[in-house]
Deep mutational scan, measured.
Amino acid sequence: MGFKLLSKLLVYLTASIMAIASPLAFSVDSSGEYPTVSEIPVGEVRLYQIADGVWSHIATQSFDGAVYPSNGLIVRDGDELLLIDTAWGAKNTAALLAEIEKQIGLPVTRAVSTHFHDDRVGGVDVLRAAGVATYASPSTRRLAEVEGNEIPTHSLEGLSSSGDAVRFGPVELFYPGAAHSTDNLIVYVPSASVLYGGCAIYELSRTSAGNVADADLAEWPTSIERIQQHYPEAQFVIPGHGLPGGLDLLKHTTNVVKAHTNRSVVE
């Protein structure tokens, strides 16, 4: 069995187990497998329904001669939608809004960016022009300005110390501490036991640490421990890039980060 097929099978099995364990909360999309990078042309966006009122959005972007996937989250909030992270750029984010209108038909009224990198804030200006209120932590807003990236308009308070959590509509926002970046936030959907790890969490097929220019490698494993301790009931975990899975993604990420750190020390 090929690795790609095995990865998709694991996603399907995880979703099936969740649907059985929580039949009222989960209505997993039966329309197909989780979209992969090879299936999404740059400039297009796919939506994948995880649970009743919960979707991931998947886009792709060219970077350094390669094409990478990027995940975000959409959560229903009454007759409105909360968006977590842009679709990595203005063109993708405009396509995301169009796809949401086509498939869901509810307005996106608020959006949260989970850290300051372009795959999370690139497209904020498109959201703002569409009347979406954009939010991020003060740290993310400051770092985005320093980096020359787009800056969300509103500040999220109460997320300055490791372990801080605040309720934001249908989700809980959690600051686990520094990891992929010093400002990275985690998003949890309690009604569906869905954990969105953003770039602080890796997919299972990833074996290298990737972009760690703004990471705190020493603190990252401790931050992941905080996530595990705060959300032990999480059933569906979405990484910032690639295929979702279960809580095993947290341990896998820790292993990859520690291996990278150990290699760096040896070198």
Rank of each mutant, 00 (worst) to 15 (best):
V212F: 09
Q49A: 12
E80L: 12
P152Y: 01
R120Y: 02
K258P: 04
F63H: 10
E33H: 07
W88V: 01
A200N: 00
E39I: 07
S264M: 05
T207D: 15
L159I: 09
Y34R: 09
G197K: 02
S56D: 08
S137R: 13
A66P: 10
F116Y: 15
I100S: 06
N255R: 10
L249D: 01
Y196F: 07
I50N: 04
R120C: 04
V212D: 10
S155V: 15
E33V: 07
L82M: 15
P239C: 01
A234H: 01
A25F: 06
G43H: 10
A165Q: 08
A15W: 14
Y202V: 10
K4S: 12
W88Q: 00
Y175R: 01
W55Q: 01
R142D: 13
I84T: 03
E225P: 02
I20A: 12
P35I: 06
V194D: 01
L6H: 09
D248L: 10
P69H: 15
F116E: 03
V126P: 04
V237Y: 05
W55M: 03
L83N: 01
I104V: 09
Q61S: 14
S56V: 13
V45G: 03
G163I: 06
E145L: 10
K258S: 13
V121H: 01
G53I: 11
H117W: 00
T109E: 11
D216Y: 11
T261L: 15
F174I: 04
W88N: 00
E150L: 08
S137E: 03
R110Y: 13
A136V: 03
S264K: 08
V124N: 09
P107Y: 15
F174A: 02
H252G: 03
G89W: 02
R141G: 02
T153Y: 15
A59G: 12
I227L: 12
W55L: 02
S56N: 11
Q49L: 12
R226Q: 05
Q61P: 04
A259F: 06
S137K: 13
P23K: 07
G123Y: 03
A90F: 15
D118H: 07
H115A: 00
G65D: 07
Y12W: 10
T36V: 12
L24E: 08
A215C: 05
A259I: 05
F3A: 09
I151E: 05
R128Q: 08
A213S: 15
L24W: 10
T254L: 09
T86E: 01
G242N: 03
R128A: 13
D216E: 12
T86K: 02
R142I: 15
D183W: 00
A66R: 12
Y202M: 08
S16T: 08
Y175N: 05
N211H: 15
H180N: 00
K91A: 13
S31E: 10
D85I: 00
V237F: 05
Y68T: 09
K102M: 14
G177Y: 00
E147A: 14
T114V: 00
V42N: 15
S162C: 10
G72I: 00
K91G: 14
P69S: 12
V194N: 00
A95S: 11
V67S: 06
Y48R: 08
Y202S: 13
N211L: 10
V171T: 08
L204R: 10
L97S: 02
A133P: 13
Y231Q: 00
A165D: 09
V28Y: 06
H260M: 15
G89E: 01
E33C: 10
A218R: 14
S155M: 10
F26V: 07
Y48W: 10
G122C: 12
P41W: 12
S161Q: 15
S16R: 15
R263K: 11
V108A: 11
A218S: 10
T86N: 02
R120M: 03
T134Y: 01
R76D: 10
L217R: 13
W88D: 01
I227Y: 00
E39H: 13
T207W: 09
V237C: 05
I186Y: 02
S22H: 14
A15Q: 15
P152Q: 02
S22R: 09
V112D: 04
I50M: 08
N92S: 12
G245D: 07
L97M: 05
P152F: 06
A178P: 13
R76H: 06
A15S: 10
D119K: 00
V194Q: 00
F168E: 03
W55A: 00
F236S: 06
Y188R: 00
L83E: 04
V257S: 02
F168N: 00
T36I: 08
D64I: 08
G246M: 11
D164K: 07
V28H: 05
R167C: 05
H57R: 02
L159V: 12
I40D: 09
G242I: 03
V67R: 12
V212S: 13
G53L: 13
G245M: 02
R167P: 06
E267Y: 06
R263Y: 08
A144K: 04
R76F: 15
V45F: 03
A25C: 11
T140K: 04
S223T: 07
T140Y: 04
V256E: 04
E80N: 15
I74R: 02
G32Q: 05
R76K: 13
T207N: 14
D183A: 00
G198A: 05
G210W: 04
S38I: 09
Y68P: 03
S223C: 03
S16W: 07
A95K: 09
T222M: 08
H57A: 02
L47H: 03
T182P: 11
H260E: 09
Y196S: 02
V75G: 02
L250M: 08
Y188E: 01
V11L: 09
A218I: 06
A213W: 10
E233P: 03
L247Y: 05
V265F: 05
V11Y: 10
Y196Q: 00
H260P: 09
L159C: 03
Y68I: 09
N211R: 14
H117P: 00
P69G: 10
H180F: 00
V189H: 15
V194L: 08
N211T: 12
T36E: 11
Y231F: 15
G72N: 01
V266I: 05
P35S: 07
H252P: 00
L24M: 15
V256F: 04
L173R: 01
A94N: 14
V146I: 13
T93M: 04
G177M: 00
G246R: 08
G246F: 05
N71K: 02
A59W: 03
R167T: 06
G105C: 15
S27H: 06
A136R: 03
V126H: 06
S191G: 08
H117Q: 02
L13A: 08
V187K: 01
G123I: 02
W220V: 02
N71T: 11
E147H: 05
Y135D: 01
G197C: 06
D77Y: 12
Y231V: 05
V266D: 06
Y135G: 00
D183H: 01
S27N: 05
I186F: 06
R206I: 11
G169R: 04
I151R: 08
G65Q: 11
P107I: 08
N149S: 08
S193K: 14
E203S: 14
F3D: 05
P190G: 06
I100P: 00
N211S: 10
I151L: 09
T253Y: 02
T86F: 00
